[in-house]
Design a protein around this nucleic acid. Sequence first.
DNA 1: TGCACTACTTACCTTTCAGTAAGCATGGGA
DNA 2: TCCCATGCTTACTGAAAGGTAAGTAGTGCA
Lengths: 119, 119
Amino acid sequence: MTAKARRGPYVCGIDAAMDVVSGKWKSLILWELDNHGVRRFGELRRGLPGVSEKMLIQQLREMEQDGLINRQVYGEVPPKVEYSLTPDGRSLNAALAPLGDWGTARAARLTADGTLHTH
Amino acid sequence: MTAKARRGPYVCGIDAAMDVVSGKWKSLILWELDNHGVRRFGELRRGLPGVSEKMLIQQLREMEQDGLINRQVYGEVPPKVEYSLTPDGRSLNAALAPLGDWGTARAARLTADGTLHTH
DNA sequence: TGCACTACTTACCTTTCAGTAAGCATGGGA
DNA sequence: TCCCATGCTTACTGAAAGGTAAGTAGTGCA
């Protein structure tokens, strides 16, 4: 097996969720897809500044395996592939919302304190 | 600087929250401290089966730096140190709850499908 | 003829994360 | 005198995550 052997026995729910959402770009992919509904590979790449093609595909593949996203291939040339969220992906994104709010509030706190190094 | 140079500019709130909660044991530490209120180092270690002393301290120190936990040292011999959550730590734990529920539901789904390898 | 477009794939390297094992300081009890 | 307990610290090692750069296929267009 080349893919990660994950889905091990989990200590708790957070564990199980983290297994699926950890990875530098996954939450952003979730967000992009939830916002736009459907996105092509190139659109996603342009929507996530700094991601490399290798990383983007890697994360998309894992998310597909984990049942978070759908991958629709059109047999055209040049190739066309569309990605969208599954119901699981959408509910995960919803479950991440409070965490996002917490993070936003924290970032605001840090900026106010001058603790954040913005450059 | 020996500590991680984190708190970089964040793309979104999830990013900021993940920066602080990623790490193999942090969510479990949060959970333990929320459950018990106050715990000594040894109690935490015994409460997190499989954690090494090195990892536990590393994560506790980072969480302290991030303002999630309080560290109370008693100048005794043998040493005695007590850890507890700050208000930020408690609110983070609350924000993690929906994610935990999602993960629990997912784990249940996987087990029902027979997709999960339990041994 | 050759270049562009798209969605990948591959090889290689660096950085980060995590685990093991050992050592340290101090005082009390056997 | 030696060992035990506690809460660390340090050095070394391996594994995993992530980054860079280049290559691939097939068609259309200049």
